[in-house]
Design a protein around this nucleic acid. Structure first.
Lengths: 186, 186
DNA sequence: TCCACCATGTAAGCGGTTACATGATTGC
DNA sequence: GCAATCATGTAACCGCTTACATGGTGGA
């Protein structure tokens, strides 16, 4: 395990909360953690192998049904050590946020109103769907009480919601500026 | 050039605005476009080679000074065709936004106030610096007039500023919640 | 019986970073 | 003269995606 390998730290973090299988980890990357990092089997299983080799995790085999072997991974004391070092060590540099939509916007002729409107409304739809999904998840997991819960899970969900809300508002503002322009011309 | 290769499209887009060298492209990725995509020489020069091979770009050699050969790349009609197809074709799927800070937040024990405060204040500092830099650039490039300019360049800068502002506000809110908690306990 | 899901992996290849290598030019 | 910057590239390696391969389990 190399010390810049973020995925390994995330797996350790997930295993610290509760022991689980590679398949369970995959599901975690599809939900909670998935808002800010993702991984699939092509990375998870090889990564577990490395962690196992480094003695940062161990596993117990559990037989499900007749013969299905489920490996339940658990973090070791050494793994906890590695993880805690990462957790309290500051983020080294500014994260690069790739955004293909913003690139298109950058390149598009802003006077081509038809293209601009389509680009913006398509993007808004994508983010509106995402926002709806996030709000629904928040309601299901945390209910209506906004003040009480301040767990890590709550915080990441809340930030993701803020992020989507902000983008939608910005896109709406942009749409409005097209309308104003049209009115002014008339 | 494979049709999923975003970098090539970005290079074409940059060359469409004005012909330039690989070195110039690199600088573009450090500023304007860099807010939403980045690339360095290890990708740019090989990518130009592929585009050249596909006849999407051509170049003229210019002698700078005595013997320094500067290759000024220019987009071809075929390249423009490729680029326009990409530009007006909708973004296929939701962008994954990696954020190591949010991961740390997710994993950190929210009751460990000392660790939380440090994590949050370090992150705020990083984004405050970024915001200051962006505001300065906006002032230099576009001046004080907020209403007039609606070019692609203006829009990406504006969005980046919104993004940073939102994160800083969210982090401030979080800091406040620590303070309130402390007061309540007293 | 069938299908969705549980469960574990591998291989190929691409996208991207880091580091290296080399040399010219411009301005102080 | 020196340093910053201009300028072009290559090589190694890693991170990550996509696709493939295989099979078991549980419920309608």
């Amino acid at each position: 395990m190399r010390n810049k390998d973020k995925l390994s730290y995330i797996i350790l973090g997930l295993l610290r909360t509760e022991p689980m299988s590679g398949y369970d980890l995959k599901k975690k990357f599809e939900s909670e953690v998935g808002e800010f990092w993702q991984a699939n089997t092509g990375q998870i299983y090889p990564s577990l192998k490395v962690l196992l080799n480094d003695k940062a995790v161990t596993y117990d085999v559990e037989i499900v049904g007749e013969k299905l072997e489920k490996k339940t991974y658990r973090i070791t004391a050494y793994g906890e050590e590695l993880f805690n070092t990462w957790l309290t060590h500051a983020v080294d540099r500014y994260p690069i946020q790739k955004d293909e939509f913003m690139l298109r916007l950058y390149f598009m002729d802003t006077d081509n109103e038809e293209n601009m409107r389509k680009l913006v409304s398509d993007e808004r739809e994508v983010h509106q769907k995402k926002l709806n999904y996030l709000l629904q998840r928040k309601a299901i997991i945390f209910g209506d009480d906004d003040t009480a819960q301040k767990s890590g899970h709550y915080l990441v969900l809340d930030f993701a919601i803020q992020r989507e809300t902000m983008k939608i508002e910005w896109l709406s503002q942009l749409s409005l500026s097209f309308d104003n322009k049209k009115t002014r011309v008339k």
